[in-house]
């Protein structure tokens, strides 16, 4: 048996182990998952080492580059010691750097990546999609935004409800939001169906090869 055959047999066996989950949560399925997680962790480590960490080390050509990496390593070491209670003051500082920089990147990304482009695209939809369609899109976006509004009003009996106008708009918004999520769910079923057919095809081919002596 050559290496490609060993590989195919292992692939077949593990596919069956995973599919055994359809009969219920069982030892064989858990065994396959444990192997998968172990392998995934190892390959994640290898890829990060090869494509990120080693190139960084290889490109140290100047004193300031080395100092930069040293600071990065120091911050990472501080994060590593997060579980130690005595070091929480210092480790919090490293976490604070990640949070501060990350928050700024997130704010900038939200504005330039979503807020401005989607607002402009929505406002221009009367030009790009036609007037009726454009108006529907704008009303859909507006009502979807209203649907997620947090603040409401408290009735004299203590029950918190939305005002009549907000409630009406939010029902329209709910319709747009749920129609979208339902369609995305349907598309997800279709994509996973393609993978399922491919896997069943693989199993049938494998068995046919064995039966046919190929």
């Amino acid at each position: 048996m050559d290496l490609s055959q060993v590989s195919a047999v292992l692939g077949f066996v593990f596919t069956l182990l995973i599919f055994s989950y359809l009969l219920g949560d069982n030892v064989l399925y858990r065994l396959a998952i444990s192997v998968f997680v172990g392998l995934a962790a190892a390959f994640t480590a290898i890829v990060t080492l090869q494509s990120v960490i080693l190139p960084l080390l290889q490109h140290i050509t100047a004193y300031n580059e080395a100092a930069f990496l040293l600071i990065a390593a120091l911050l990472a070491v501080l994060l590593l010691f997060k579980p130690l209670r005595g070091a929480s003051g210092l480790t919090n500082l490293a976490l604070a750097v990640l949070i501060g920089v990350g928050a700024a990147v997130a704010v900038y990304g939200a504005i330039t990546g979503t807020l401005i482009p989607l607002t402009l695209a929505t406002a221009e939809s009367t030009n790009t999609e036609g007037i009726i369609e454009g108006i529907i899109i704008v009303l859909g976006v507006v009502s979807s935004l209203v649907y997620f509004q947090y603040t409401a009003r408290r009735r004299p009996d203590g029950v918190v409800v939305r005002g009549p106008i907000t409630r009406t708009i939010s029902v329209v918004g709910e319709t747009f939001v749920m129609l979208t999520l339902g369609a995305i769910y349907g598309a997800a079923i279709l994509s996973s169906l393609i993978v399922l057919v491919d896997r069943l095809d693989f199993i049938v081919d494998f068995i046919a090869n064995i039966v046919g002596g190929g």
Partner: peptide
Amino acid sequence: VPLSAGARGILLGIA
């Protein structure tokens, strides 16, 4: 039209 509007509404809210 409507699906694009719903998706934009959700994404704008998150942004």
